[in-house]
């Protein structure tokens, strides 16, 4: 069970699925007065940001 949870944690972190959780935590810390973006909006912006800076892949 512990191993499974660790694997899931790793997969979520590695794929960026947990990026929204990190964003929420960060947002609560830095701008507690403003409502955070919805997940849909957040993911949309994250993908659109990749438009300008693609991760390069190696040979």
């Amino acid at each position: 069970m512990k191993v499974l949870r660790a694997v899931l944690w790793y997969l979520r972190e590695l794929t960026g699925e947990s990026a929204y959780d990190h964003y929420l935590a960060r947002h609560a810390r830095t701008h507690p007065d403003r409502p955070p973006l919805s997940r849909r909006e957040f993911e949309r912006r994250r993908l659109d940001a990749a438009e300008v800076a693609p991760g390069s892949r190696c040979c």
């Binding site: 979520r12 960026g16 699925e17 990026a19 929204y20 997940r39 993911e43 949309r44 993908l47």
Partner: peptide
């Protein structure tokens, strides 16, 4: 799927 149906659910999509 990732953009319109289940935004951000990368693990399940993959």
């Amino acid at each position: 799927y990732l953009r319109h149906i289940r935004p951000g659910r990368v693990v399940e999509t993959s």
